[in-house]
């Protein structure tokens, strides 16, 4: 099947088998190896990307279902060599160790902050319940997400990094959520 997908701001047209998982399409065909596969059952969340501005597990979406949609991966977050506030917060709060869960964790954190611009600890923990980390015990991840949210409040930094309803639209996917 022929599909046309916008990934991290670039349009791609490809022929894929219908059974091709979106994550395999990203990794194998587009070389977007920043997004990884950690399980078979959609429990670990390591493969989380955004589809039209909402987090999804790319192991549980077929590539054909992304036809005519926009995908944002961890590789599409940094702009002009500048880290996204969530990436920066993960670094500054030591929210990663081996780093394998990190792309999915960051992508889900973005989604969480879009829904909850000032999340308390419990909201963060519940909002990340679809992402497993085996290294950190989550404490610094929770801290990083709250820290990032703080830096992304309206007026707190560059407009493109703030949370607004509009930034959920696909054309802004990645930059602002």
């Amino acid at each position: 099947m022929r599909i046309t997908v916008n990934v991290d701001g670039v349009g791609y047209t490809d022929d894929v088998e219908p059974r091709t998982l979106l994550v395999h399409y990203l990794r194998e065909r587009l070389g977007k190896t920043g997004t990884v596969v950690g399980c078979d059952t959609s429990n670990c969340g390591a493969c989380t990307v955004h589809l039209d501005g909402h987090s999804v597990k790319s192991c549980s979406v077929f590539a054909v279902q992304a036809d005519r949609h926009e995908v944002t991966t961890i590789e599409g977050l940094a702009r002009d060599g500048k880290l996204h506030p969530v990436q920066r917060a993960f670094h500054e709060n030591h929210a990663l160790q081996c780093g394998f869960c990190t792309p999915g964790m960051i992508m889900q954190s973005l989604d969480l902050i879009a829904d909850h611009p000032d999340p308390d600890e419990e909201t963060v923990r519940k909002g990340l319940e679809g992402n497993l980390c085996r290294c950190t015990g989550y404490q610094n991840i929770v801290k990083a997400v709250r820290d990032a949210a703080h830096h992304m409040r309206p007026g707190a930094g560059p407009e493109a990094e703030q949370v607004t309803e509009e930034t959920r639209s696909p054309s802004h996917a990645g930059g602002g959520e």
Partner: peptide, 9 residues
Amino acid sequence: VADPQVRHR
């Protein structure tokens, strides 16, 4: 139900 990503799909 499940988790946020799953609830999106």
